[in-house]
Amino acid sequence: MSRRLSLPPARRAWLDVALRVTAAVFGGYVLTYAATAALARLLPLARFDAAMLATLLSFALYTGFVLWAFAAASVRRVWLGIALSLPLAAVGFWPVWFGGAS
Protein backbone atom coordinates (compact mmCIF):
# COMPACT_ATOMS: atom_id res chain seq x y z
CA MET A 1 0.00 0.00 0.00
CA SER A 2 2.72 2.48 0.96
CA ARG A 3 4.59 1.63 -2.21
CA ARG A 4 1.55 2.42 -4.29
CA LEU A 5 1.11 5.75 -2.59
CA SER A 6 4.63 6.74 -3.56
CA LEU A 7 3.89 6.24 -7.27
CA PRO A 8 3.32 9.37 -9.39
CA PRO A 9 -0.41 10.08 -9.82
CA ALA A 10 -0.61 9.19 -13.50
CA ARG A 11 0.95 5.81 -12.85
CA ARG A 12 -1.30 5.25 -9.88
CA ALA A 13 -4.36 5.93 -12.01
CA TRP A 14 -3.18 3.38 -14.56
CA LEU A 15 -2.53 0.81 -11.85
CA ASP A 16 -5.99 1.42 -10.43
CA VAL A 17 -7.57 0.91 -13.84
CA ALA A 18 -5.58 -2.26 -14.52
CA LEU A 19 -6.49 -3.71 -11.13
CA ARG A 20 -10.16 -2.88 -11.59
CA VAL A 21 -10.34 -4.36 -15.06
CA THR A 22 -8.67 -7.56 -13.87
CA ALA A 23 -10.94 -7.70 -10.85
CA ALA A 24 -14.06 -7.06 -12.92
CA VAL A 25 -13.35 -9.48 -15.75
CA PHE A 26 -11.54 -12.38 -14.08
CA GLY A 27 -12.46 -11.86 -10.45
CA GLY A 28 -16.02 -11.21 -11.54
CA TYR A 29 -16.13 -14.47 -13.47
CA VAL A 30 -14.76 -16.45 -10.52
CA LEU A 31 -17.27 -14.86 -8.17
CA THR A 32 -20.15 -15.43 -10.59
CA TYR A 33 -19.09 -19.03 -11.05
CA ALA A 34 -19.05 -19.63 -7.29
CA ALA A 35 -22.30 -17.76 -6.73
CA THR A 36 -24.06 -19.69 -9.52
CA ALA A 37 -22.93 -22.99 -8.04
CA ALA A 38 -24.11 -21.93 -4.58
CA LEU A 39 -27.43 -20.65 -5.91
CA ALA A 40 -28.02 -23.89 -7.82
CA ARG A 41 -27.35 -25.84 -4.62
CA LEU A 42 -29.57 -23.68 -2.43
CA LEU A 43 -32.62 -23.12 -4.65
CA PRO A 44 -35.47 -25.24 -3.32
CA LEU A 45 -36.27 -26.74 -6.72
CA ALA A 46 -35.69 -29.97 -8.56
CA ARG A 47 -32.02 -30.45 -9.43
CA PHE A 48 -32.43 -29.66 -13.11
CA ASP A 49 -34.61 -26.59 -12.55
CA ALA A 50 -32.22 -25.19 -9.95
CA ALA A 51 -29.22 -25.63 -12.23
CA MET A 52 -31.11 -24.07 -15.13
CA LEU A 53 -32.42 -21.06 -13.23
CA ALA A 54 -29.07 -20.34 -11.58
CA THR A 55 -27.25 -20.50 -14.91
CA LEU A 56 -29.77 -18.31 -16.70
CA LEU A 57 -29.44 -15.69 -13.96
CA SER A 58 -25.66 -15.84 -13.86
CA PHE A 59 -25.18 -13.36 -16.71
CA ALA A 60 -27.19 -10.71 -14.87
CA LEU A 61 -25.11 -11.41 -11.77
CA TYR A 62 -21.88 -10.98 -13.69
CA THR A 63 -23.10 -7.71 -15.23
CA GLY A 64 -24.08 -6.37 -11.83
CA PHE A 65 -20.71 -7.25 -10.38
CA VAL A 66 -18.76 -5.61 -13.20
CA LEU A 67 -20.73 -2.39 -12.73
CA TRP A 68 -20.09 -2.47 -8.99
CA ALA A 69 -16.38 -3.16 -9.52
CA PHE A 70 -16.05 0.11 -11.39
CA ALA A 71 -18.30 2.08 -9.08
CA ALA A 72 -16.78 0.90 -5.77
CA ALA A 73 -14.80 3.47 -3.81
CA SER A 74 -11.57 1.46 -3.76
CA VAL A 75 -10.07 -1.48 -5.59
CA ARG A 76 -9.38 -3.12 -2.26
CA ARG A 77 -13.06 -3.34 -1.55
CA VAL A 78 -13.60 -4.99 -4.94
CA TRP A 79 -11.03 -7.67 -4.24
CA LEU A 80 -12.56 -8.24 -0.79
CA GLY A 81 -15.86 -8.81 -2.58
CA ILE A 82 -14.23 -11.36 -4.84
CA ALA A 83 -12.89 -13.19 -1.77
CA LEU A 84 -16.53 -14.03 -1.05
CA SER A 85 -16.29 -16.59 -3.83
CA LEU A 86 -14.46 -18.99 -1.51
CA PRO A 87 -17.34 -19.52 0.93
CA LEU A 88 -19.81 -19.46 -1.98
CA ALA A 89 -17.84 -22.16 -3.77
CA ALA A 90 -17.76 -24.15 -0.55
CA VAL A 91 -21.57 -24.03 -0.44
CA GLY A 92 -21.84 -24.97 -4.09
CA PHE A 93 -19.34 -27.77 -4.10
CA TRP A 94 -19.45 -29.20 -0.58
CA PRO A 95 -20.59 -32.70 -1.58
CA VAL A 96 -17.88 -32.82 -4.23
CA TRP A 97 -15.16 -31.52 -1.93
CA PHE A 98 -16.11 -33.33 1.27
CA GLY A 99 -17.39 -36.49 -0.31
CA GLY A 100 -20.89 -36.32 1.21
CA ALA A 101 -23.91 -37.31 -0.82
CA SER A 102 -25.79 -34.35 -2.23
Partner: peptide, 22 residues
Protein backbone atom coordinates in the same frame (compact mmCIF):
# COMPACT_ATOMS: atom_id res chain seq x y z
CA UNK B 1 -27.77 -9.55 -26.01
CA UNK B 2 -29.01 -11.59 -23.07
CA UNK B 3 -30.58 -14.29 -25.21
CA UNK B 4 -27.39 -14.46 -27.23
CA UNK B 5 -25.53 -15.39 -24.05
CA UNK B 6 -28.24 -17.88 -23.14
CA UNK B 7 -27.75 -19.90 -26.34
CA UNK B 8 -24.36 -21.14 -25.14
CA UNK B 9 -25.21 -20.88 -21.45
CA UNK B 10 -23.59 -24.15 -20.40
CA UNK B 11 -20.38 -23.29 -22.23
CA UNK B 12 -20.12 -19.83 -20.73
CA UNK B 13 -21.20 -20.64 -17.20
CA UNK B 14 -20.88 -24.35 -16.37
CA UNK B 15 -20.89 -23.68 -12.60
CA UNK B 16 -24.25 -25.28 -11.82
CA UNK B 17 -23.47 -28.12 -14.19
CA UNK B 18 -20.17 -28.76 -12.40
CA UNK B 19 -21.66 -28.47 -8.95
CA UNK B 20 -24.80 -30.58 -9.40
CA UNK B 21 -23.91 -32.96 -12.21
CA UNK B 22 -20.15 -33.27 -11.85
Amino acid sequence: TYTGLVIFFLIYMPAALDALYG
